[in-house]
Simulated scan of single mutants.
Amino acid sequence: MPIVSLHRGDPLVDGRQSERAMLVRRGVQRLMGAMRISLLPEMALDSGRRADLAGLTEKGDVVIVEIKSSIEDFRVDRKWPIYRLHCDRLYFATHPGVPLDIFPEDCGLILSDGYGAEILREAPEHRLAGSTRKVMTLRFARAAADRLQAAEWAANPYLTGPPPEAG
Rank of each mutant, 00 (worst) to 15 (best):
G167A: 15
A54W: 01
A145V: 11
N156G: 07
R49S: 05
D14K: 08
I119N: 10
A144V: 00
G33W: 04
A51C: 08
Y91I: 08
Q149N: 00
Y115A: 05
R127S: 11
Y115T: 02
Q29C: 07
M22D: 01
Q17S: 15
A54E: 00
R30S: 05
P96W: 05
T137P: 00
R84F: 12
P162S: 14
A141T: 04
E122Y: 00
S38L: 01
E105V: 12
G60C: 00
Q29R: 11
L56V: 05
K68R: 15
G116T: 12
G27V: 04
I67S: 05
M1A: 12
H126T: 10
D77S: 12
A51Q: 03
Q149P: 00
L45F: 06
S112R: 02
A129W: 08
N156M: 09
E165Q: 14
A155S: 14
L56F: 01
S70Y: 13
R49K: 13
M136S: 03
R127M: 12
P163H: 13
L148I: 03
D101T: 10
V28D: 04
E125P: 02
I3W: 03
N156V: 03
R25V: 03
R78V: 13
G167R: 15
L85S: 12
S38G: 01
V13F: 08
A123W: 06
G116F: 06
A123F: 10
I71E: 13
R50N: 09
T57F: 14
D52S: 10
K59Y: 07
L45S: 03
V65F: 00
M1P: 14
G33Q: 10
S5F: 01
R89Q: 15
V24C: 09
G33K: 07
S70Q: 14
R78F: 15
H86Q: 02
R133V: 05
P124E: 14
P163G: 05
V4I: 06
L159A: 11
P104L: 14
D73Y: 08
L90K: 06
E66D: 15
P99N: 14
V135P: 01
Q149M: 14
Y91P: 09
R139H: 04
D106C: 15
R121Y: 02
K59V: 04
G15H: 09
W153M: 07
I37P: 02
Y91A: 05
H95V: 07
D10Q: 10
H95Y: 06
Q149H: 04
A129N: 07
G55P: 11
M35V: 08
A141G: 03
W80K: 02
R78C: 14
L120W: 06
P104V: 11
R89P: 14
S70V: 12
V62Q: 02
I3A: 01
T137L: 08
I119Q: 08
L138F: 02
R142H: 09
I64Q: 07
M22Q: 09
P81T: 13
Y115L: 07
E58A: 13
L40Y: 00
E165L: 15
N156F: 06
A144Y: 10
L148N: 03
R49E: 12
M43C: 13
P99T: 10
W80M: 05
H95K: 02
L12T: 13
A129Y: 10
L100M: 15
M43F: 03
A129D: 12
L148Y: 02
L31Q: 04
L39P: 02
R139Y: 03
A34V: 03
E58G: 04
R26A: 14
E125N: 08
P96V: 06
H86G: 02
V24E: 00
V63H: 01
H95Q: 12
